[in-house]
Design a protein around this nucleic acid. Sequence first.
DNA 1: CGGACTGTTGACAAACTTCAATCCGAGTGG
DNA 2: CCACTCGGATTGAAGTTTGTCAACAGTCCG
Lengths: 288, 288
Amino acid sequence: METIPPAIPCPNQAPQCAAASISTHETMARVLQMFEPDSADQPVAAKFPVLLRRVHAGESLVHEGAPADAIFFVRLGTFKVFRIAEDGYEQVLAFAVRREVLGFEALCAASYPAAMQALEDSTVYVIPRCEIAQLSHALPSFALVLQRAGSLTLTHSRELVDILAAVASDVRLARFLIQLSKRMAACGQSPRRFLLRMGRREIASLLGVAHETVSRCFSALAAMGFLYVNDREIDILDMNGLKAFSRSTRRQTDDAPGPRHPGLVRPTARTPVRALAHPSGLMPGGAI
Amino acid sequence: METIPPAIPCPNQAPQCAAASISTHETMARVLQMFEPDSADQPVAAKFPVLLRRVHAGESLVHEGAPADAIFFVRLGTFKVFRIAEDGYEQVLAFAVRREVLGFEALCAASYPAAMQALEDSTVYVIPRCEIAQLSHALPSFALVLQRAGSLTLTHSRELVDILAAVASDVRLARFLIQLSKRMAACGQSPRRFLLRMGRREIASLLGVAHETVSRCFSALAAMGFLYVNDREIDILDMNGLKAFSRSTRRQTDDAPGPRHPGLVRPTARTPVRALAHPSGLMPGGAI
DNA sequence: CGGACTGTTGACAAACTTCAATCCGAGTGG
DNA sequence: CCACTCGGATTGAAGTTTGTCAACAGTCCG
């Protein structure tokens, strides 16, 4: 199971559905690492096979405003959630990686309020909306998975608010990278070294700054010695320092009017990123 | 039912629990306007009375980091959700009004990641966490209410990301007011005229700007003729204009480098707010 | 090899934060 | 009852950050 054969037509899905196969709720629960599958549920779960859909890099999973037919759990890969403004500006609202739910926000609406697109080759579990009510009742563990996944997504969104509310753009970027690092760790990858699946422009849109500013802030964080940056390769050299820096807030309510970065000088150095030597010499190739 | 007698001790709650009474899931569902209560559920629902808790203005509903014992549905009033940074800065993450769920983000964690405090006298339905699994199974309509409430909260949080990602601070404020207006309408109040339950500093924290900037932006929006502002009294005079203004985005991806506000001049006038006449003469008193 | 795209950096103008002063209403104590 | 303080809101002035425009390097692709 869980292999992906050439192509099985998926009845309820949009025409761009490239490839799909079938899995089970038990397997899905295990992959999502939400809980230990309850053996008592197995006979019931067997009656509800789960569609597995492959989405290629750059392909849309759902379009903004499309009827909300299903929700998805990311089995593998990365997605961006975004809206297109009237004037064409792309506003990124979230990135989703393995184990996260997509489309949960549509459960209280008739259509998806935002588009979702794969940033790399990805696969998702597809739960048709019409099955959700039955599943919730027949398979209590599914109801819990859904609650916890929704809760997790809300938690991420709240953290994003915390990121966006930061004063300075370099602090925003630092907080973003730390959140990303945690999520990489949560899905089994290295929290220190990873490859960004999104471009500067997409990060800029999420953080609410100009893409040039994102570029400059990467350089600044690197100049402060927190990071090694080479294009989309990131290596966090000083996690504690980065975290300390990310805790910089606006001047506090009233009491202590101290400097914004106690004991930490904000260097104005503008050393080019590529000139900063990586401690291990050259950055190895497949740094995921 | 739904009356609030003097004081019944509530077993599972914190000592600061001021007053509480008992209601039913049927009543709760009706108040939340989530769905038509299913009469078939009534016998089951009767076995699960719902605690109703009163929270006075300024009182904390939950503290940051407290064990996540329960989730809440706002029956009446307004809450702020916030975190305190190490240096004492208060970061507001959300405001919640009637019909919204509080604490949903704690379902995937052991403790509440953020504090919640009443901004005015409020009442909430209390669902102990230990009951959630049973309720979800025994009362399918509850499972749906919870899913939809969580989904709604996520939708709000995503909209907030959209607000925060706006370039200019006056656009952020405009978007914030529009979201607030919609939520006021959704809980039965006027979408045009309302009383802000939060101070400038709290709005500023949510929007990620200085509180002086919030004040200036209120003045600017008033000077543009979109609003009448007097302290916390808001009257939206030109909803379409305000919406058009709120759609201003960063310069779009590549194609049309036109002005940010097509056909709309950003006045630099700095007329004092109190000098701007309200069309209906004096602002009437109890403008909620 | 030209063309398109991404990422980086510089320069300047615009927006924002910060510090500061003022006004006002609410609460308090004489 | 009134002076007093306290906190919230508003506005001004100055300094800093950031957006915008522009140029350039590197990569991918037809």
